[in-house]
């Protein structure tokens, strides 16, 4: 990771965070009727996380928790219908009146998409964890490696 942070970059990233969160929430909710969906939402959210991590605002250490919870949410949505005697992944549809978006016909597809989002963010975090390369910024470590190879 870059060790030199510019304060301006840091500030703008902090400022951009809520905006990006909003965009990704929109993508998540709007997906059923307009372009978007859990995957896109996850990637946008992932972009924020990336920026924040690169700026040193957070550490990429929580990937597994996101992955596990994402998979569990998705699975719960998948098998819940079985409890009612419906087939696997039978999505329930309900209508909700939401303040800004108006009437949303939604249902179990929404938590399903939330699970997807969690997994995608988890993947991005894992990637950040994996690509953060202690050796590149640490000449001693690199030397150590060269001796090994």
């Amino acid at each position: 990771m870059t060790n030199s942070h510019s304060p301006i970059a840091e500030m703008s990233i902090r400022a951009a965070t809520p905006l990006a969160l909003l965009i990704s929430a929109y993508l998540l909710f709007a997906g059923h009727n307009n372009p978007g969906g859990g995957f896109a939402a996850g990637l946008v959210l992932g972009a924020v996380v990336t920026l924040r991590t690169l700026a040193g605002l957070q550490e990429p250490t929580y990937a597994t928790a996101l992955l596990v919870s994402g998979v569990l949410i998705v699975i719960v949505v998948a098998i819940a219908p079985l409890l009612w005697g419906d087939p696997l992944l039978d999505m329930a549809v309900i209508s909700i009146r939401a303040p800004i978006l108006g009437t949303i016909k939604s249902g179990s597809a929404l938590p399903f998409d939330v699970g997807v989002t969690a997994i995608v963010v988890g993947l991005i975090v894992a990637l950040l964890d994996g690509l953060s390369d202690p050796e590149t910024s640490d000449p001693a470590g690199r030397g150590n490696l060269e001796r090994n190879s």
Binding site: H32, N33, N34, G36, G37, M91, V93, A109
Partner: peptide
Amino acid sequence: GGKNVVNVILT
């Protein structure tokens, strides 16, 4: 319950 057919297919 969705107008975006692609998304309904996916979810």
